[in-house]
């Protein structure tokens, strides 16, 4: 009995386009990426070559992983602003501990604050229902404070970048950045988790309609706590990769990546309201932002203008997304 089926009516082009954009957000993104690269090539003929591509990917990867944290948290209607601090902490602890410790031990020490901050974030958001933005901002301030205290205790022993991390962060093999060795399995794991596991499904469902998941027996705090711990651990791993790329431990190492990570997820089609999006789009979003940054640098656009642009992108994309959803 399909008497209730929606009768197909002629749909105006505008709405068809919108629906297309909502269904296949990746295609316009890829087109945008290509356009940006073409513009770059026109402005600086010859800049787009094998080395440039490897370099762009190298810088896009840490951004893409952090944007993965934002993607997952945003799917539940949240956000994780502590990723910058967490990445910085794990990088800094790794670089300083590896001087006297076995690398494995240093690695464990480096990941500890990540797990801890993720746990606190998860409890704050999931149990106490603090707005994720405020909660993660708060833990990131505390984290920064702790890092400063920590810095003074290790100031004498100095720091070094483990060779492995440097190789992973900067090395290029047969034209491919070594970081891909880490990133490809990681991205595959994230995509698989989101699409094919119960946990991933719950992230979408919680962000789409928390009440419905509650009625289906989902316990919100469990999902949220697990999510923020995952996000923090990913941020910690990013920190290790990033220190291998930048090679200069500092107390604000990964901070500049926070804003773009949010922007990358939003551009990639993940809704800041939750329930919609995916990691593939985010990866392209990260690439777009990296290319855009190069472009803005070539145009000698100052840092301030870049931030304004990012802010406007977030606002514009969110508002546009709202319209697409509403008009259905």
């Amino acid at each position: 009995m399909s008497s209730t089926a929606i009768t197909p009516a002629p749909v105006p082009l505008g709405r068809r386009l919108k629906r297309f954009m909502a269904d296949r957000p990746l295609i316009p993104l890829v087109i945008l990426l290509v356009i940006l690269v073409v513009i770059l090539q026109i402005l600086r003929p010859g800049i787009v070559n094998e080395r440039w591509i490897a370099n762009t990917i190298k810088f896009a990867i840490p951004l893409a992983i952090l944007a993965g944290c934002q993607t997952m948290t945003m799917l539940t209607g949240g956000i994780d602003l502590s990723v910058g601090t967490v990445a910085t902490m794990s990088a800094f602890i790794m670089a300083t501990q590896v001087v006297n410790q076995d690398p494995a031990v240093a690695f464990l020490l480096a990941m500890m604050p990540a797990v801890l901050i993720g746990l606190v974030n998860g409890i704050g958001v999931g149990v106490f229902r603090v707005h994720p933005l405020i909660m993660t901002l708060g833990t990131s301030l505390i984290g920064t404070g702790c890092l400063q205290v920590y810095q003074r205790t290790v100031i004498a022993s100095g720091a070094k970048i483990p060779d492995f991390l440097a190789w992973l962060g900067t090395g290029v093999t047969y034209g491919f950045p070594n970081a891909l060795l880490l990133f490809v399995p990681l991205a595959a794991l994230i995509i698989f988790t989101l699409a094919r596991t119960g946990f991933g499904r719950l992230l979408y469902a919680v962000g789409d309609n928390e009440r419905a998941t509650r009625l289906s027996g989902v316990q919100y705090w469990q999902v949220i706590t697990a999510l923020y711990i995952t996000s923090s651990v990913l941020a910690g791993i990013t920190g290790l990769l990033y220190i291998g790329l930048i090679k200069a431990p500092s107390l604000s190492l990964a901070e500049p990546l926070v804003l773009p990570s949010v922007a990358a997820a939003v551009i990639g089609g993940t809704s800041i309201f939750g329930g919609r999006g995916g990691y593939t789009g985010t990866i392209i979003g990260a690439l777009i932002l990296t290319v855009l940054t190069t472009l803005l640098t070539i145009l000698q656009m100052p840092e301030g203008a870049r931030r304004i642009l990012f802010g406007l992108i977030v606002l514009f994309v969110t508002a546009a997304y709202l319209r697409i959803v509403e008009e259905r």
Binding site: E303, G304, R307, I308, L309, F310, G311, V314, L315
Partner: peptide, 8 residues
Amino acid sequence: AMLFVLQG
């Protein structure tokens, strides 16, 4: 978003 914009 305004935070980004004003900062910039």
